[in-house]
Simulated scan of single mutants.
Amino acid sequence: MSPVLEVTNLRKHFVSKKGFPTPRTVTVRAVEDISFTINQGEAFGLVGESGCGKSTAARALLRLIEPDGGSVRWKGEDVLAARGPALKALRRRMQIVFQDPYSSLDPRQSIGSALIEPMAVHGIAEGAEARRRAGALLEEVGLPAAALDRFPHEFSGGQRQRIGIARALTVEPELIVADEPVSALDVSVQAQVLLLMQELRKRRGLSFLFVSHDLSVIRWFCDRVAVMYLGRIVEEGPAARVLANPLHPYAQMLRDASPIPDPSRRGVLPRIIGEIPSAANPPPGCPFHPRCIHAMPQCSRDMPAWTSAEGQNQGGVACHLHG
């Protein structure tokens, strides 16, 4: 099966000035040479602590922010080189659902207008037909078509996220980038929205790039997962394997710190060692070595190479323990 999305050595740095009275240039390496693929109909997860670069990576591959290097290909077409009509066509194929369902909607724009506008921009439908389609989309995500004339402040957080999903579907995309789509919602509402996205995935044959820090959500929704740390992917593979038998010490730490909803398996959660280093001043060698209980002298000198995991299609890991 050929992938629909291929990301190769994607890189995004932010440069700023800091200090007074003599400012100095600071470079924040938010995303550093990450690579992954997504197949048709597959849900691929990006997981890691806050600040690891997963949301920046998602926005960069969509060119909501321009990356500094690397390659992004949609069914063989170069996304980063696309301009004008070619880029507009690619944007129709790939859409995003944002983390905050309120700030992602214009408070002065009715729901109907928010859904109809993308159809007009891409020449899909106008007038009565566009309104009919918008009403059908609202019903598909579990809201009444009568909600078209209402405004974002009239809805709950879960309902607004359903509207965000409906807006992403207006242009009939093939890939949805879900950037922490349920982290701002109550737990019961999270389950409803996740079930909705899973149903849409099956019905429409959608592919997903699912960004989250919640391992339980990733475990349930995703087929494969990549673990990010300080802008780099440190482990990748089938979600079942990575979350049950993680190879990288950081992935193990995330797994062990994730509570298990089973009273018979209650215990003391492990203490997470240290803090994430600054992306503006990453440590030499393996970026995780200051927090790693298995750190060796080599870890502070050399960046670990990528090593394939044992077994076919089991992904790989960047760690000197497995080099």
Rank of each mutant, 00 (worst) to 15 (best):
I272H: 02
F151E: 05
S300G: 14
L243F: 13
I176F: 00
A146K: 12
V4A: 06
E174M: 01
E32T: 11
K18N: 10
W306S: 05
T307G: 03
N313G: 11
L200Y: 04
V187I: 09
R271W: 14
P277V: 08
Q95C: 07
Q109I: 10
G274I: 05
R162I: 02
F20E: 06
A244I: 09
L230N: 05
F221C: 05
L175D: 04
R91G: 13
A251S: 14
A146D: 14
P284C: 07
I276W: 04
G70W: 06
I293D: 14
P259N: 05
L10P: 04
L10S: 02
R29V: 10
S55K: 01
L196K: 02
D186T: 10
V225S: 07
R92C: 10
I111W: 08
F210G: 08
Q190D: 08
V47L: 08
A130V: 07
A178C: 15
D106L: 09
L62E: 04
A226G: 09
I273K: 15
E42M: 06
M303Y: 12
R203N: 07
A82L: 01
K75I: 00
A191N: 06
M296F: 07
D214K: 07
W74Q: 07
C319G: 01
S113M: 00
R201G: 04
F155L: 08
M296C: 03
G48A: 07
A125P: 07
S188R: 01
S71D: 12
H320G: 09
P270A: 10
R108E: 07
G135P: 00
A43R: 09
G142W: 00
G142M: 03
M296V: 12
A240S: 15
I96F: 04
D302F: 15
R132T: 11
A166Q: 02
S308Q: 15
L87H: 05
A125E: 10
V187P: 07
P85E: 15
F221L: 06
P181H: 10
R201L: 03
Q314G: 06
A280G: 14
G142T: 01
V317C: 04
A86E: 14
S216G: 13
C299Q: 03
A58K: 03
R59M: 12
G112T: 12
